[in-house]
Design a protein around this nucleic acid. Structure first.
Lengths: 188, 188
DNA sequence: ATTCACCTATCTACTGATAGATAGAATACA
DNA sequence: TGTATTCTATCTATCAGTAGATAGGTGAAT
């Protein structure tokens, strides 16, 4: 299997567990059974590795989002789809969202990495905002979308820290309650 | 001024900026103009320092919460008070909540530290839950409280990562919208 | 005389990073 | 085709810097 891809896999896993600054080239190398110098062959600097990890994560996440949206019934909005994506991500990995982790560490990250993370969040928000009623102002759409992303990220955080995924489920419930009200407002 | 207290101040600041694993004894020492060995005099291990930082943070936060609750008008519930506390904390420090940061890093932390962090969140939730209508089941009160804490933590995360405190404000709006509905439900 | 709050000096382990070598595969050229 | 060259992916060895931690010493305050 492709070493580069395997490195990204392990790096993503480790960062989601312990954060960027607690991940070392030697540990990554050990995991693959190679030497740390060989990791530098594929990713010359840690910053470049970090950027690559976030980049791939964001691409995959958005791709998955569009697949889920295509599969779900049309009356289920994008909000529900995003909630599902977050719930699936937590169930699958039992770990923090990569960007939830890196977003927290922002000020201790190379700028190139934190910029990628910001783009992940903005992409989430933009994707959601597109699904809101067109008679809402762009600012309102952005705000509503940000509320959803915030609630979901917080839900994951609590789930991890208190070791109980019910907290993400509760956060999703809050989000969908809001959606329900908006539906009533709109269709009134 | 008390060195021990100053160490806790600087450690808290640094952790909130960069995370636990990016904070070093040398940096803390430099900040106070002492040597790293002297830091070990006050806090023999990093773990003990970490525990002390979180402990003090939690105590102060809860104390502040009760002060705010005493000052606010009685019809403003505990939800609004907690929102205010979070907004004030972000405005004052322009940094992540200490426990929001450490909660994310949970799996890369000494267990003693992550336990203290979990207790912070649980204390937040319990404090909130106490303020909900007594005819709600304990489980429902806990869930509603957790929803609020999750939304606020997520709001801070987005505010930090996207460098715009409006995201916490938006999260608060989501929370208060929910509270408003509950008020209607209850008083109906 | 003891304790406190710091110091110097040092330890081992680990960090990201680099230089230079090597085996083997792929490619270019005669 | 056969030889020469280059590329790929890894290695060994090493670097300067930093990590947390410890031993033992110093001067001042109690």
């Amino acid at each position: 299997m492709d070493t580069q891809e395997r490195l990204l896999d392990v790096a993503e896993f480790q960062i989601r567990q312990k954060g960027y600054n607690a991940v070392s080239f030697r540990e990554l190398a050990d995991e693959l059974g190679i030497k740390s110098a060989s990791v530098h062959y594929h990713f010359p600097t840690k910053q470049q590795l970090g950027v690559a990890v976030v980049h791939r994560y964001r691409d995959r996440f958005l791709e998955n989002l569009n697949i889920l949206a295509a599969k779900s019934s049309p009356q289920d909005g994008r909000v529900r789809t995003l909630c599902t994506a977050y719930r699936m991500a937590l169930e699958k990995s039992n770990a923090h969202c990569l960007c939830g982790m890196l977003g927290a560490e922002t000020r201790g990250l190379p700028e190139a990495v934190s910029q990628q993370v910001a783009r992940f969040f903005q992409a989430n928000i933009d994707w959601l905002a597109t699904g809101f009623p067109t008679d809402w102002s762009p600012a309102k759409r952005q705000m509503r979308a940000a509320q959803v992303v915030a609630a979901l990220q917080g839900g994951i955080l609590l789930s991890i820290s208190l070791d109980d995924s019910a907290h993400l489920v509760a956060a999703i419930q809050l989000v969908e309650m809001q959606s329900g009200i908006e539906f009533l407002e709109t269709s009134r």
